[in-house]
Design a protein around this nucleic acid. Structure first.
Length: 553
RNA sequence: UGGGCUAUGGCCAAGUGGUUAAGGCAUCGGACUUUGACUCCGACAUCGGUGGUUCGAAUCCACCUAGCCCAGCCA
């Protein structure tokens, strides 16, 4: 897919800042980046950051980088790099440059050395426990490290030693010399480099020291000439430190960090730990289980990326933070699909209809558009014959009230794209369930014939039995019902109805590709699952159609 | 009195001194309909609280209340 930029006519505070900066001539165009740590999978919440960074830059004539913030090799893996690239590309957010923080390790080291040379950083020998103690707590100031007063020469020598492997892991760290009494904990001589001998997916064993986020991030942004460095609210407290590093490391470009509210979808499992647990316990079928809102899960389910863009755009970019209902998202999914996808007939819970006055062994084909409002989606011919399947819930023996707009004994309905049928009799199995419904059809009522002498009691869909394609249908609901009480483990909040498997039929007119979505008329949107085979065709329900039908009354 | 941030209808969210307080989701009416879908009409808030400034405040000030974030050699 080419770059997907859905213009955001909605205002937001970052857009205002960008426009002001542009007006002041601060820069020619915004340059943004999405900087994930490759240690997991992306989910719907990340889509806000990705799409906002991408869209805001492109909309104002700038560009967008994808930069992996790979400064902690013990947690990171190339497998996540690949997964994230795939997800972001799928979203249609194409990056100008694919970058890695680890590409800058040399420069970062040099910039840290600059700090040392200026007397703004020192090597500290305190143990982790001691550092914690010296840091003080939220209400009381910290104390200076006894190593804080080391000479510049000694710090240079020691920092070089750290880099060259002269010390054991964890034996020393490099810290910025700022203010141990700052009310902002981040400013209490934060650690810049730690010694950590581990294999890095990119730099292999070249380094035994790795920079910390607070130091690395601003340097990365500055090197790339990022103008607006967007991040989430929890980094607000880090901004003074971000600016401190950019300034004292004498970076040419001065990026500006701006924080916005993360997108949180209510009652969705997004935590890496939790998802991993669900995967390992077999509760879900991998990180791309269609019940997960990981981008890979949504893709597998059949959600189109355009719907995600529209949803993100509608949400705006606030500085406040609340939980968004997943239903709002589903509505955007429906809206997109309803205009872009072919509509076919599928029966989720089949019951057989015998058209008693239709000739035995005969089948005829009737013309049917794939989408009434979008002729460009084409048309097909659908079969009609003596034996059909209709939806079990579309029939009831006795019409319960005038509002019932489906089939009932003595009642005539239209079969969409075909004929009127009238139910005359019901044959039951021994267990009392319906075996077949006997109907008669009226050949004068063919779809498109203009017949208007009688009004049918509604329109229902059907699939011709002899040509029907059997399919497995997976109907999804929220994985978890109510996540609000964090004290209850997720395992105890699982929704037993989150995945229901049905066996139905669809018309045989289409050859779907994986994740291709269709509307099953009157039922919902379904997309082919990646596990589908010719022998066992499997569809995921992307989302059900809305319904104002109220059965009780 | 550690520091930082947020507070607009059931949910999301515009709004930065003068508007009937955008819009979306949800809900409730009703029209239309070869999908009880779509579409279309219509209904649905006085802006966390209290004081103040002002001819005029959601928008400015003060105080209060509630929620979120910060004490990883994680990001």
């Amino acid at each position: 897919m080419k770059d997907l930029v859905i213009t955001m006519e909605n205002r937001n505070f970052i857009r205002t800042i960008i426009e002001e900066d542009l007006a002041k001539g601060k820069h020619k165009a915004p340059i943004t980046r999405f900087p994930p740590e490759p240690n997991g999978f992306l989910h719907l919440g990340h889509a806000r950051a990705i799409i906002m960074n991408h869209t805001l830059a492109l909309e104002y004539g700038g560009y967008f980088n994808l930069r992996f913030d790979d400064t902690n090799p013990v947690k990171e893996d190339m497998i996540f790099v690949e997964g994230m690239k795939e997800d972001i590309a799928w979203l249609g957010c194409h990056w100008k440059n694919l970058l890695f923080a680890s590409d800058y390790f040399n420069e970062m080291y040099a910039r840290a050395m600059t700090l040392v040379e200026k007397g703004l950083a020192y090597v500290c020998d305190l143990t982790p426990e001691e550092i914690k103690t010296y840091r003080g707590d939220l209400k009381s100031p910290g104390q200076n490290s006894p190593y804080r007063a080391r000479s510049i020469e000694e710090n240079i020598r020691l920092f070089e030693g750290m880099k060259n492997g002269a010390f054991a892991d964890g034996e020393k760290v490099l810290r910025a010399k700022i203010d141990m009494a700052s009310p902002n904990m981040n400013m209490r001589d934060p650690i810049i480099y730690r010694i950590q001998r581990s294999y890095h997916h990119n730099t292999k064993n070249d380094w035994c020291i790795y920079p910390m986020y607070d130091f690395a991030h601003p340097i990365e942004d500055a090197i790339e000439g990022i103008t607006h460095s967007l991040c989430s609210l929890e980094f607000e407290d880090h901004r003074p430190l971000y600016d401190w590093f950019v300034k004292h490391c004498e970076m040419e470009n001065v990026p500006r960090q701006i924080e916005f509210g993360k997108l949180i979808i209510a009652n969705q499992v997004t935590g890496k730990r939790h998802i991993r647990q669900l995967v390992e316990d077999g509760v879900v079928d991998g990180w791309d289980d269609p019940r997960l809102i990981t981008l890979s899960g949504l893709r597998r389910r059949g959600v189109p990326p355009q719907a995600i863009h529209e949803f993100i755009k509608a949400l705006g970019l606030p500085k406040s933070q609340g939980d968004t209902d997943i239903d709002m998202f589903y509505e955007y999914v429906r809206n997109y699909l309803s205009q872009h996808v072919r509509r076919i007939h599928g029966v989720v819970d089949p019951v057989k209809v015998i058209v008693t006055n239709y000739p035995e062994g005969q089948t005829e084909y009737l013309q049917a558009d794939y989408h009434r409002d979008h002729p460009e989606l084409g048309s097909r011919e659908i079969p009609f014959g003596k034996e059909l399947y209709i939806e079990r819930e579309d029939f009831v023996e006795e019409k319960p009230n005038k509002k019932w707009k489906r089939l009932a004994l003595g009642v005539e309905v239209r079969l969409m794209h075909a004929y009127f049928i009238k139910a005359n009799d019901v044959i039951y199995h021994e267990d009392g369930t319906i075996k077949e419904i006997h109907c008669t059809y009226d050949p004068n009522t063919q779809s498109g014939s203009g017949f208007n002498e009688r009004k049918p009691n509604g329109t229902i869909h059907y699939v011709e039995a002899s040509t029907a394609q059997p399919v497995e249908l997976r109907l999804f609901d929220n994985l978890v019902t109510d996540l609000s009480n964090a004290a209850i483990p997720i395992e105890e909040k699982l929704n037993p109805q989150s995945k229901i498997i049905k066996h139905g039929f669809i018309e045989k007119s289409v050859n779907p590709s994986v994740s291709e979505a269709f509307q099953f008329t009157r039922i919902g949107y379904f997309a082919l699952d990646k596990e589908s085979t010719d022998q066992n065709m499997i569809f995921n329900r992307v989302v059900a159609l809305k319904s104002s039908f109220k059965p009780k009354k």
